[in-house]
């Protein structure tokens, strides 16, 4: 029994270390590339700083000082878009989720579960189906290449997800607390703001962070609807690959690091919430 357990532990840790390597190596590669000089990339592959190349800060200087302003706009755009999308869809989606969790609905033959499922099914929609109508609509409304246009279309995709997630979340909060508050004379609005939202703070945070990460990283819709003024970070990264004759890998590595950093920090700090949010509904 003990031997079997030990063997299991060895196998388990072998797998874990293997996967750690798989995840870590590209990360390591990204970081060292940002510190390489062009010749340490273009001539041949170099692996370890101070052993086969001398690290330097010239790519950082190039990105931040020489081209500073050019590079800052996509980041500002992405920050604005990610935060506004997250805020808007958490509010709208959260309200919808709360309603579906606490009140009985009947739209035609659709009751709560069906309505919730109706929201869930939107997740299936391939964005490809929506590219063309949005393109025509935005042309008419002058929303192409504007941040508000991007926020709007991102909300379209994230609201159904938030509704579904938040409904599940509110259902895990015992309804008795709210009921006793109602009996104590609190009104519906008061119950929502004073009881339900504070109790569901983890869910709200989860929804907010997931939507934020999603819209920070989104590519296809940004590619289609944004041209120049309102490009976001992922689009900016791809535009960089062929901007000059020959890719400037070192500069791109710096930009990539800063494109990854905010979401990774937010994501890892709130790992528990994210895990919960992503596995909601699938695992009870």
């Amino acid at each position: 029994m003990a031997r079997q357990r030990r063997l299991k532990q060895i196998v388990a840790y072998t797998i874990l270390f293997f996967w750690t390597l798989v995840v870590a190596i590209p990360t390591y590669w990204l970081v060292i590339t940002a510190f390489k000089l062009p010749q340490d990339i273009n001539a041949r592959a170099t692996f370890i700083p101070w052993v086969d190349f001398t690290p330097g800060l010239h790519a950082f200087q190039d990105v931040f000082i020489r081209q500073g302003l050019v590079n800052s706009r996509p980041f500002l755009n992405s920050i604005v878009v990610a935060l506004s999308t997250a805020a808007l869809s958490t509010v709208i989606g959260g309200a919808g989720g709360y309603a579906l969790a606490r009140f009985p609905f009947q739209i035609g033959r659709f009751s709560n579960d069906r309505i919730a499922f109706g929201f869930l099914i939107q997740r299936m929609f391939p964005p490809a189906v929506l590219l063309i109508p949005f393109l025509l609509l935005y042309r008419r409304l002058g929303l192409l290449d504007t941040l508000s246009g991007l926020v709007l279309v991102y909300c379209a995709f994230s609201i159904p997800f938030v509704v579904w997630m938040m409904r599940d979340f509110f259902r895990t909060i015992p309804v008795e607390i709210e009921e006793s508050a109602l009996i104590d004379g609190c009104d519906r609005v008061g119950v929502l703001f004073r009881i339900a939202i504070p109790l569901s703070a983890p869910g709200v945070v989860t929804a907010f962070v997931l939507v934020m990460i999603g819209s920070w990283n989104e590519f296809l819709l940004a590619l289609t609807f944004m041209f120049n003024k309102a490009v976001t970070v992922p689009l900016f990264l791809t535009l960089q690959t062929s901007v000059q004759y020959g890719t400037q890998y070192w500069n791109m590595a710096v930009i990539a690091i800063f494109s990854v950093l905010p979401v990774v920090i937010a994501g890892l700090a709130l790992e528990r919430y994210i895990t919960r949010g992503l596995t909601f509904g699938a695992v009870k």
């Binding site: 590209p26 590669w29 990283n217 992922p234 990774v264 790992e271 895990t275």
Partner: peptide, 25 residues
């Protein structure tokens, strides 16, 4: 530690992943 670390790739934008693995490595 492993659980948090293994979650990381999911946070990174696919474009950055392509750049690191596909374009560089």
């Amino acid at each position: 530690f492993f659980r948090v670390f293994f979650l990381m790739p999911l946070m990174i934008s696919p474009i950055a992943v392509v750049f690191i693995i596909g374009r560089l490595m």
